[in-house]
Each structure stands twice: as structure tokens, then as C-alpha cells.
């Protein structure tokens, strides 16, 4: 996929389209758009950067997955097998791009996966049917362009050869398949994201950590005692054991009594 940042207008259609396509629950994202303000009044600019799984050529997530639940298929898509995934989140730790998330147990839709890891699938179910991914379909600015890089006639191949493109964290050797045109350091750089996050963003993130059950028992709220949160996480973890035990019990029951 090529993302032409010159055309991205931060409309978030891609985010909503993707969330609707998969019923992605609140608090987790397969794709999102980072927004940054740059410069000093009145010479100020706004930059957007859509993010999603890079479908790396050398995906660390795949390498580190202990059960082969995530894999790279013959077409280069990095995909999930929900029925294999044990929810260990090794791959989440491994992905340098935050592209993965653990699906919460509570979500809308009866037969959708829960408590396993999920991520962008490059909409393989659409692509196999000759349709562009949902986020590309929806992209108002026309910033997201999808196609076969090996086909020199394709729009993506033309763009990659004609324009200056960059990928995220090239130094990690993951060889991403998502190319950005017109990338801006102010938003592409991960350290910058941390150093120059606005104070309100930190506040919001804190709210998020307090109210969104991440199932990882790892949320530390900035500005509050780390050890308090470590303790609270452990208490939450212990409190969650009976609930999970009930789940396991039910699964056994189903297995034995059908």
C-alpha cells in the first residue's frame, strides 16, 4: 500500500470504514491517523499520518509467535489464525509499529473472535474478490492506494518509482510494505511522538488506561504512583481469575457434554 500524505486530510474515513468492516471494538484500532501541529503562529501546519500494519517482509510478529497463529501467506499478507492464537501477546510486544491489539472479550457480534490478537489483514477477503481494502475504498482524500507492487503498470508501482517514498523505522530491517509519500519527520518519528505529545493527549491516554480494560494488566497512569498501579494490576488480575476459570469450565463442559 502507498499512502500519499500530500492527499491525507485527516478525515478519519479510513478509521471508521475499517472499524465498521470488522466491528472493531472501541479502544482498539486496526488503523488510525496520527495528527500533529507544526510550526509557530502564524506559520503553522497540520500533518496527518495514517497508520496500519505494515505487512512487513520480515515480520517480527510472525517470527516470535510461538504457535504459528500469525503467519505470512504466499501473497505477502501477514495474517492471523484466530483458532490457533492463544492470546499470549508475544506478537504485540514484537511489532515495532503497534499494529496489533488483543481483542476484548466484550464486543458486538456473536461469532466474532474474542481475547485473541488481531490486526489489519489488508482486507484479504475483499482483495481476493477484486476489491480494494475498506480503508482505501473510503479514503476521501485518495491518499491510500493499494495494488500490486510487482506489476509495473499498477498505480502503486508507478508512485513508488516516481515519488520519493519512505517507510517507518527502516533501521529495524522489517522491510515494510506500506510506503509513505511526503512523510514528515514531525509525525513519523517515534521519539518525537513521545517527546511532543500534547499534555491533553497524555491526559486522555490516562483516562483510557483507567477505563479501558486492556486484559494485559499493565497500565501505568502517568503522574500517579507506579507501584500503586502495579499493585492494582495484580489485584485486577487475581480478580479476573474466577471469571476466566468459569470460562474454562464452560469450555470443558461444552467439550464433554456437547
Amino acid at each position: 500500500m502507498v499512502i500519499d500524505l500530500r492527499k491525507c486530510i485527516g478525515c478519519m474515513s479510513c478509521v471508521v470504514a475499517c472499524k465498521a468492516e470488522y466491528g472493531v471494538p472501541l479502544g482498539v484500532w486496526r488503523t488510525w491517523v496520527k495528527v500533529a501541529d507544526k510550526g509557530r503562529y502564524p506559520h503553522t501546519k497540520r500533518v496527518f499520518m495514517p497508520r496500519l500494519c505494515n505487512h512487513c517482509d520480515y515480520p517480527i510478529c510472525v517470527r516470535n509467535c510461538p504457535t504459528q497463529a500469525t503467519f505470512k501467506n504466499e501473497d505477502g499478507f501477514v495474517l492471523q489464525r484466530y483458532n490457533r492464537c492463544i492470546g499470549c501477546r508475544t506478537c504485540v510486544v514484537a511489532c515495532p509499529y503497534n499494529a496489533r491489539h488483543l481483542l476484548p472479550e466484550a464486543r458486538k457480534g456473536k461469532n466474532l473472535p474474542r481475547l485473541v490478537v488481531d490486526k489489519c489483514t489488508f482486507c484479504i477477503h475483499r482483495v481476493k474478490k477484486g476489491l480494494v481494502p475498506a480503508c482505501v475504498q473510503a479514503c476521501v482524500g485518495g491518499a491510500r492506494i493499494f495494488g500490486d507492487l510487482n506489476d509495473p503498470k499498477s498505480q502503486v508501482a508507478k508512485l513508488v518509482s516516481k515519488e520519493q517514498v519512505s517507510v517507518l523505522k527502516p533501521e529495524l530491517g522489517t522491510s515494510p510494505s506500506v510506503y509513505y509519500i511526503g512523510g514528515d519527520w514531525a509525525i513519523m518519528d517515534e521519539n518525537h511522538s513521545y517527546k511532543f505529545r500534547s499534555r491533553q493527549l497524555v491526559e486522555e491516554f490516562n483516562t483510557f488506561k483507567k477505563n479501558h480494560f486492556g486484559d494485559a494488566f499493565a497500565d501505568i497512569v502517568e503522574g500517579e504512583s507506579t507501584m500503586y498501579w502495579v499493585g492494582k494490576n495484580m489485584a485486577d488480575f487475581i480478580a479476573s481469575i474466577p471469571h476466566k476459570a468459569a470460562g474454562v469450565f464452560n469450555a470443558f463442559k461444552k467439550l464433554i457434554f456437547g
Binding site: 501473497d75 482483495v127 500490486d148 503498470k153
Partner: peptide, 30 residues
């Protein structure tokens, strides 16, 4: 992991008629 053989599938499953001057022939449907 194979070398970049990304998205052969897109090209294989669609055949859109060529439109001169209107982008490439091998595009996926919107």
C-alpha cells in the same frame, strides 16, 4: 519468508478493461 511477492492475488483475480489515460489496467475495484 519469501521475497517481495506482494499482492499477486490482486492482479490474478481482476481483469479491468484498459482505459487509455485513466490509470493502470490492473486495478482493484473500488
Amino acid at each position: 519468508i519469501n521475497r517481495r511477492d506482494f499482492l499477486k492475488v490482486g492482479a490474478a483475480t481482476t481483469a479491468v478493461a484498459a482505459c487509455p489515460g485513466v490509470g493502470s489496467a490492473m486495478e482493484l475495484k473500488l
